[in-house]
Amino acid sequence: MKLSVYILCGFMMFVFTACGTTSASLNINTAPSQQSQQQAQSSQKNQTEAPKPQPQPAGVITFDQGGPLPKGVQPPVDTYLKPGEVFVPGYAPDRFEGNWGIGKIITPASEKTKGEAEAVQFYDNKPIWISANFIITKSRPATAEELHEGMLVLCGKIDEYGRRNYDTWFLGVVKSMEYLYKGEILMERYPHDALPKQFQWKLNLIRIIEEPTLRFKKVGNNYMKLP
């Protein structure tokens, strides 16, 4: 009888010991698994968070002027400008609503000229000294594939008699591509001390501004160009 009791007690101690060991092993195995899962979630969160936009200098506004063409897209052949020709400011050179005409640079800007260049518009052939940042020295025809909302571009108003010296170019911001089916882009411009004005413009009369990057400051309802 005593022997049976001893055997039964020994068997029960073995079972309790085995269960305790199993429980401990489960705790040890699951702890690293939870930690790995938290690290994976943290890593995934860091990968999907979008980078924050870089702040602009106080009071300075720049628009998106585009960049390299999408892969596989070739720029249209530029048959408008001739070698050495640039867009020289005409009316209201320091305002968004100002315009440009075809011309050339006579004296490039330098430290000696305090950042101003001597240029002439072919319309009147009168030399002027003006901030080099107002002269559009590099541009090209736009393609539909690269245009998108918010882009700052040049819009051309071509003389009906084909006199290039009478052509004028002005700024516009792309608002929508919804009229592309008929070869037009919905644009917006900002007249001086007036509400923004929307208009549709032919794609073949739009140019991408490559140089310089135009800088503005907001004054009232207007954008004023910075030299």
Score class of each variant (00 low, 15 high):
90 G>W: 05
58 A>N: 13
209 I>F: 03
35 Q>F: 10
19 C>V: 08
173 V>A: 02
77 V>Y: 09
15 V>W: 04
110 S>I: 00
131 S>F: 02
45 K>Q: 15
12 M>F: 15
7 I>H: 05
155 C>H: 01
154 L>A: 01
182 K>T: 08
40 A>W: 07
76 P>N: 07
30 T>A: 12
29 N>W: 14
101 G>S: 10
157 K>T: 08
142 A>V: 10
217 K>V: 11
93 P>K: 10
224 M>Q: 13
78 D>Q: 05
15 V>I: 14
120 V>W: 02
95 R>C: 06
58 A>K: 14
129 W>L: 11
54 Q>G: 06
22 T>C: 13
40 A>V: 11
26 L>I: 14
70 P>L: 03
200 Q>M: 13
146 E>Y: 08
162 G>Q: 08
89 P>N: 00
37 Q>M: 11
97 E>K: 00
82 K>P: 06
35 Q>S: 14
83 P>E: 08
131 S>P: 08
92 A>P: 00
192 H>F: 12
136 I>T: 01
102 I>F: 00
3 L>G: 05
98 G>E: 00
14 F>M: 13
210 E>T: 09
220 G>S: 10
152 L>Q: 07
54 Q>A: 12
111 E>D: 14
202 K>N: 10
124 D>Y: 06
146 E>P: 03
165 N>K: 11
102 I>L: 05
49 E>D: 13
25 S>C: 07
128 I>C: 04
170 F>G: 14
70 P>W: 04
79 T>P: 01
175 K>N: 07
203 L>N: 01
146 E>I: 13
201 W>F: 01
52 K>H: 09
188 E>Y: 04
222 N>K: 02
37 Q>R: 09
151 M>T: 05
17 T>N: 14
58 A>V: 09
134 F>G: 07
227 P>Y: 05
124 D>V: 08
38 Q>C: 08
134 F>K: 11
78 D>P: 06
188 E>W: 00
198 Q>M: 10
93 P>T: 03
215 R>K: 15
67 G>K: 13
222 N>V: 04
152 L>V: 03
124 D>W: 09
111 E>S: 12
167 D>N: 13
220 G>P: 10
51 P>T: 02
207 R>P: 10
185 I>R: 08
139 S>P: 03
104 K>E: 15
8 L>H: 07
61 I>P: 02
129 W>G: 07
195 L>M: 11
113 T>Q: 06
122 F>T: 09
30 T>I: 13
106 I>Q: 07
31 A>T: 11
12 M>S: 15
122 F>N: 11
170 F>L: 10
137 T>D: 03
48 T>E: 12
86 V>Y: 02
49 E>N: 12
140 R>L: 03
60 V>K: 04
174 V>S: 03
225 K>A: 15
36 S>A: 15
178 E>G: 04
127 P>N: 05
148 H>K: 14
41 Q>I: 07
211 E>Q: 15
201 W>K: 01
120 V>K: 00
195 L>Y: 12
16 F>Q: 14
144 A>Q: 12
138 K>F: 06
173 V>P: 02
87 F>D: 02
107 T>A: 01
171 L>I: 04
168 T>A: 11
164 R>Q: 14
207 R>S: 08
223 Y>R: 04
108 P>T: 05
148 H>M: 01
136 I>K: 05
29 N>P: 03
139 S>W: 09
77 V>N: 10
8 L>A: 15
177 M>C: 04
163 R>H: 11
172 G>N: 06
